[in-house]
Amino acid sequence: MTRETAVPLHEMISGAKEEILTEWIKNQLSDKSRSKGVPEASLRNSSSEFIRLFEEAITKGNVDDIEKPEWEEMRHMLAELSATRASQGSTPSDTAKFIFSLKEPLFARLTPEKGQGNTEASAAVWQLSLLLDKLGLYTAETFQRTREAIIRRQQKEMLEMSTPVIKVWDGVVAVPLIGTLDSARTQIVMETLLQKIVDTGSRIAILDITGVPTVDTQTAQHLMKTVSATRLMGAECIISGIRPQIAQTIVHLGIDINDIVTKATMADAIKEALARGGWSFERHLESV
């Protein structure tokens, strides 16, 4: 590659650092489309910090790969910048533009030094341009990753919220399952259900699948796992709310249904659970 320029890149920059910085900040502040959320002071700070780290990193010689350790401080700073900017209401492209906007003052400074049309200068411009592109994209990536982390966390929270384990009677707990039952969901259902069984000392757990839209092999297996884990703990599982289509699917899938207790509705399941616990009820019509 053209890395072996006569005058190293960092020397071209270090000589004119202050000039570049001043012009860069001026350009940024005069940009009409600049996000108003970012205060001028923080813009100045991050600009000079960026230039400092940029110079430091290219001084060490590596101008191709920003994944290398020389760029670690820079990556760290950009990750933080991207997060702060996002919280100040900047879009990821605003933040990337911040970095891209350094090109103008930087290149303006490079060309006259070497004279127009100088091949060395254009090689340097090309290299720096690639580098700044990478850094700009890095902020966008970081932004996206932060977003994804938030989404994952919210998904997890939602999963936890969507599986309430209710104590319906002494020794009886129930989970109304709503929505698709994938393996991550089953894990959480199992964990919360089993913990609740221990906490309440319940001998019977009711799994109501009225709200589960479809049951495929996977879902059915997940249900079976929950049933056998419950049994290993010393409690019994009743599955209720099996709709006709789902019953057919389960039969079709050839799952061993001999040792599963099923009831048509949650009410039937509760009745069964109470009967097993030795409870009986009587209705007094005169008091209705």
């Binding site: 319940s202 001998r203 884990a229 290993l232």
Partner: peptide, 23 residues
């Protein structure tokens, strides 16, 4: 049997058939 163990051995595929369990 602790919940964590019940979940783990179910995942492992151990069913302990014929063993009686209590809370």
């Amino acid at each position: 049997m602790q919940p964590a163990i019940a979940i783990t051995i179910t995942e492992l595929g151990i069913t302990l058939p014929g063993i009686y369990t209590a809370l």
